[in-house]
């Protein structure tokens, strides 16, 4: 994420706050400006379009509200996923915004921001995987370690916070089962 100015942080935080209060990302720039204590044209100047504003806000939410502790092993990822699901569940409106912006294709947010870290951990611990298996493990964990998991389990299965965290971590453990005993020494 590029360095944000104080004004930009004020805009993004105000917008996120309003999304939570109103239950929708349909908030006018005028209302956002008033909440941030700045002029409306300042919002436009920093974020010329709604999409610019929404993507910046989603990235800011990921990096702050949903920030995670760094994992030191690929085998710690299921624990990180469990924690992440609980954080999403505490802030459902923000979780939906982040989930949706990651599903817009090339015009959207990066759908797998944790990919580089997963690759680093996996390459250090289990370097012997062939290319296809490595790619599949990273892709599956990256998919599970995302807010899409929380949205889908809640919406399609009516799961509560505990069951979502449990199921997501269980699936991540299943993905790791195939490489559990292949750690380099």
């Amino acid at each position: 994420m590029t360095e944000l100015s104080g004004t930009q942080v004020a805009i993004l935080a105000a917008y996120a706050e309003l999304i939570e209060e109103l239950g929708s990302d349909d908030v006018s720039n005028r209302v956002i400006a008033r909440r941030a204590g700045i002029a409306e044209r300042t919002v436009f100047r920093n974020y010329p379009t709604r999409v610019d504003l929404l993507l910046a806000t989603a990235a800011w939410i990921e990096a702050t509200v949903f920030a995670r502790e760094e994992s030191h092993s690929i085998f710690d990822i299921p624990l990180a996923i469990r924690d992440a699901m609980q954080r999403y569940d505490a802030r459902p409106e923000l979780a939906h915004v982040v989930a949706e912006t990651a599903m817009r294709g090339v015009n959207g947010a990066a759908p797998s921001p944790g990919r580089a870290q997963l690759e680093r951990l996996l390459d250090a611990e289990v370097p012997s995987l062939d290319a296809a298996q490595r790619r599949a493990v990273i892709a599956a964990l990256s998919h599970l370690d995302s807010v899409g998991t929380w949205v889908t389990f809640r919406r399609e299965f009516g799961m509560d916070r505990r069951d979502i965290a449990d199921t997501a971590a269980w699936a991540a453990e299943a993905v790791l089962d195939s490489i559990r005993d292949r750690v380099a020494r």
């Binding site: 990256s142 799961m159 069951d163 199921t167 299943a174």
Partner: peptide, 25 residues
């Protein structure tokens, strides 16, 4: 439920979209 939810999530449009955009697959 764990199994059904996992299969559902790996078969989703989200899985396709993430792998296509995030992994160029």
């Amino acid at each position: 439920r764990r199994l059904a939810a996992s299969l559902r999530y790996f078969s989703s449009a989200m899985f396709w979209a993430r792998l296509r955009t995030g992994f160029d697959m």
